[in-house]
Nucleic acid binder design. Structure first.
Lengths: 160, 160
DNA sequence: TGATATCGTTGGTATCGCCAACATTGGTCA
DNA sequence: TGACCAATGTTGGCGATACCAACGATATCA
């Protein structure tokens, strides 16, 4: 073992001083852990987002689901297809507006959501378990602040 | 305007209470801003990472660049091809170890790095400019802590 | 009625991260 | 020395994520 793997992996300081870089780097790590856990559970993050939205808001159209979860309409289609196939949601046309599909969470879908949430809790523990409680809270607060700021295109439009 | 775009985009509370979700969500926003800025500049994040590594560590082999920047060997190839074509780096075989290519930063590459860094600074300002200085520092500190933790596979291997 | 907008859907694009395989080269060990 | 293993660069591919463009069907508004 002439060369230790980790020892040669010193990152350029410039990258470690670039917050936006740190964010994406952390997200890469997070995604790796989340994907591994979710893949094992046969789910994706889109699944989790959609199920969570349905639980909280009840039957919702696909377009609305996309807006709430920041997922493109076209990606919602595949996600719903998948969830329908596994009987976690039901898709039916809205009689009041036949352009829309109303997506409904099933009982199995409700349980599915609980299970996925548990998986994510595990990942969260691996990822943030070593942080002080205050630090963890500060992190989520800061991230929410960033996401709610007008620099996020999602927020800029609403005028009233 | 019967329905305001932003108003219907209320995220499920469950997502806003899941730190790992917030991280990836923030990263998505960050990537969107970064990609837009970098695309306009004709660069990618791989370009930035590689140029930064070359500036800091001098001529480096492709494999070593990959390890330092957490980029796969195969992706380094395309990145270097691109940078060579634009004359930002030079690729030549290492006479001391003919398996390796030594990648060298050119003068133009140095300036290129400065330019990209400026672009990223702008994004950073849009993204984090509204945070208090202390909050921004706490964020980078926390993210570095997460990245340096053993939950990151990159850190686990090195034993000595 | 005609113009406009929304919805679901299909299909395509780009980045990113990763993996398998191969030939070349270097180092190690019997 | 020769056999074996490791590292490198390269090619090709895969899957997840995040988009965008366009279409037909439907709804709404002037």
């Amino acid at each position: 073992m002439e060369e230790i793997e980790g020892a040669s992996a010193l990152q350029p300081a410039r990258l470690r001083q670039t917050p936006s870089w740190l964010i994406t780097q952390t997200a890469t790590l997070t995604n790796r852990l989340i994907s591994a856990a979710l893949t094992e559970a046969g789910a994706t993050r889109y699944h989790y987002a959609v199920l969570a939205a349905l639980e909280e808001f009840g039957p919702t159209s696909q377009a609305e689901l996309g807006r709430r979860c920041h997922i493109d309409r076209s990606d919602i289609v595949a996600t719903i297809n998948n969830l329908v196939h596994e009987r976690y949601v039901e898709r039916r046309q809205d009689p009041a507006d036949r352009r829309q599909n109303l997506i409904t969470l099933t009982e199995a879908g409700q349980q599915r959501l609980q299970h996925i949430a548990g998986v994510l809790d595990g990942v969260q523990h691996d990822l943030l378990g070593h942080l002080a409680e205050r630090e963890r809270e500060a992190l989520t607060t800061t991230l929410r602040t960033i996401l709610d700021h007008p620099s996020n295109p999602e927020n800029g439009e609403a005028s009233a």
